[in-house]
C-alpha cells in the first residue's frame, strides 16, 4: 500500500525547519514523552529542528527528577541525547542540520527557574523573540 503514495513523497534533498513546541509538564500526561520520540526521529531525516519549552513544558527539563516512587520511566536523561544530536550537528561541517534548544524566558521566570535548573544547556529567548522565530518555521508540531 505504501508504494502507491511514493511519488507524493519525493523529499530527496528537501530541508525544512521543524519546531517542536513542548508546553506540557512531564508524568501527569504522556505528551512530553511522545513528543521526544518525534524529535529524535527528525534527526534521521536531517531536518533543522528547534526544540522549544514554553509554559509547563519547562518542567520537562528540570534537574533532579526521580520517578522511582511513582514507578514511571524518568525520561529526562533523553534530553541529553537531544543535546548530543545538537552538538553533533554543530560540529560536523558536512551535516546541514541546525538544531536549537530554546526556553521561553517568561515561562521560565514565572516558574521561579533559571537556566541552572535545567538538565541541558538552553538558549533563553523572550516571548517576542520566540514569537518572531516561530514565524520563520515550516512545520510546527505541538503535543
Amino acid at each position: 500500500m505504501e508504494d502507491q503514495f511514493e511519488d507524493l513523497f519525493d523529499i530527496e534533498g528537501v530541508k525544512k525547519k521543524f519546531m517542536f513546541v513542548n508546553r506540557k509538564a512531564p508524568y501527569g500526561t504522556i505528551y512530553a514523552l511522545e513528543v521526544l520520540e518525534a524529535v529524535l526521529i527528525s534527526a534521521a531525516f536531517e531536518q533543522h529542528a528547534a526544540i522549544v519549552f514554553v509554559d509547563d513544558g519547562v518542567y520537562q527539563i528540570k534537574k533532579g527528577q526521580d520517578t522511582k516512587a511513582i514507578n514511571m520511566k524518568n525520561f529526562s536523561p533523553t534530553f541529553k541525547i537531544i543535546e548530543m544530536e545538537k552538538e553533533d550537528a554543530d560540529e560536523d561541517p558536512d551535516m546541514d542540520m541546525v538544531w536549537r534548544i530554546i526556553v521561553e524566558k517568561e515561562s521560565m521566570e514565572a516558574r521561579g527557574f533559571t537556566p541552572d535548573d535545567f538538565v541541558i544547556d538552553v538558549e533563553v529567548l523572550s516571548s517576542a523573540e520566540l514569537g518572531a522565530f516561530m514565524e520563520e518555521q515550516d512545520v510546527i508540531l505541538s503535543g
Binding site: 505504501e2 513523497f9 519525493d10 526521529i41 531525516f45 512545520v139 508540531l141
Partner: peptide, 23 residues
C-alpha cells in the same frame, strides 16, 4: 488504516506545504 513508524510524520512534514495538528 496502516501501521507505520514515526518517520512517516516527519516525512509528511517535509513533503507537505502545511502540516496541521489537532489534539
Amino acid at each position: 488504516f496502516r501501521i507505520s513508524g514515526l518517520g512517516q510524520l516527519i516525512e509528511a512534514g517535509v513533503a507537505a506545504d502545511r502540516l496541521v495538528v489537532f489534539g
